[in-house]
Design a protein around this nucleic acid. Structure first.
Lengths: 137, 137
DNA sequence: CTATATTTGCAACAACATTGCATTTAGCTC
DNA sequence: GAGCTAAATGCAATGTTGTTGCAAATATAG
């Protein structure tokens, strides 16, 4: 059994050729998040409807999670073993490189302290940095 | 000269009836950010294309800025005198109430410290909190 | 191998956004 | 205030992104 097949099985997802292709796309750039259009161009020829539903299944089963990069575009990233997104109330930082358009997951990268107006109840925190990554310097 | 007219003039924007209406929409809920669809419903009858171009002009001239609320939807907010968005490298926090869907600008609300991998160059920081605001408790 | 529920791929559709162009209008100069 | 010019407006056409319904194909369990 290939590693891709094992991943699908671990997340209780049916092992189809299309899903294998999608998982492999995520493995091209590990620890980074991909927009729908990036996924589409890495995939090659495919049916867009099937991709949307595949991403939804992946997210429902906990294989990927959604990320906002601070630029309004929503992206998807593989959940890793240390992925905290599916546990509650965990801040999760991302770095968006404006040069290569890659969004990196920064797990466990810092601390923050916020003073909120009284009575505001915080449920989740999204921290997105924008700049230039090491590869693009 | 009305206050709305004065605002347009200050940002070197032509003073048209349509632009006055858009500025007034932003003044309905000061210090909060509006999505395109929220703006559209507050505006009443209007031409959608003109609105898109108006928002672009407003942003180019520095009257409004774009905000991401951490939920993938992009919103617009008036820049205030203390608005730091158009100066460089300034963190800027927002609070998105998941109950009333309002996004508040939290200027000057806290501090954060992030450890980045070497050689990453940060240009801007976007911090979005999600939860329930005081009005909706 | 067979049964069954899931997945896939196509068609149609809906929401959101952009471009080009002709017309109108704001603001400047005289 | 009249005329000029560049900017703004409104309409048509088109593009992009995402959804829904349905019939055919297929992965997994028994």
């Amino acid at each position: 059994m290939s590693e891709t097949e094992a991943i699908l099985k671990r997340y209780k997802l049916r092992n189809t050729p299309f899903r294998q292709r999608v998982v492999e796309v995520f493995n091209i750039k590990p620890h980074s998040a991909l927009s729908t259009s990036q996924i589409e161009s890495l995939l090659g020829a495919h049916d867009r409807i099937t991709l949307y539903r595949t991403l939804k299944s992946f997210e429902d089963k906990g294989l990927i999670h959604q990320v906002t990069d601070g630029k309004g575009e929503s992206k998807f990233a593989l959940c890793h073993d240390q992925c905290e997104v599916h546990r509650a109330n965990k801040e999760h930082a991302h770095f968006h490189c404006e040069h290569c358009d890659t969004t990196y997951c920064l797990e466990d990268a810092g601390s923050l302290e916020i003073q909120l107006p009284d009575q505001y109840q915080v449920k989740s925190i999204n921290l997105a940095l924008t700049g230039v990554c090491a590869d693009c310097q």
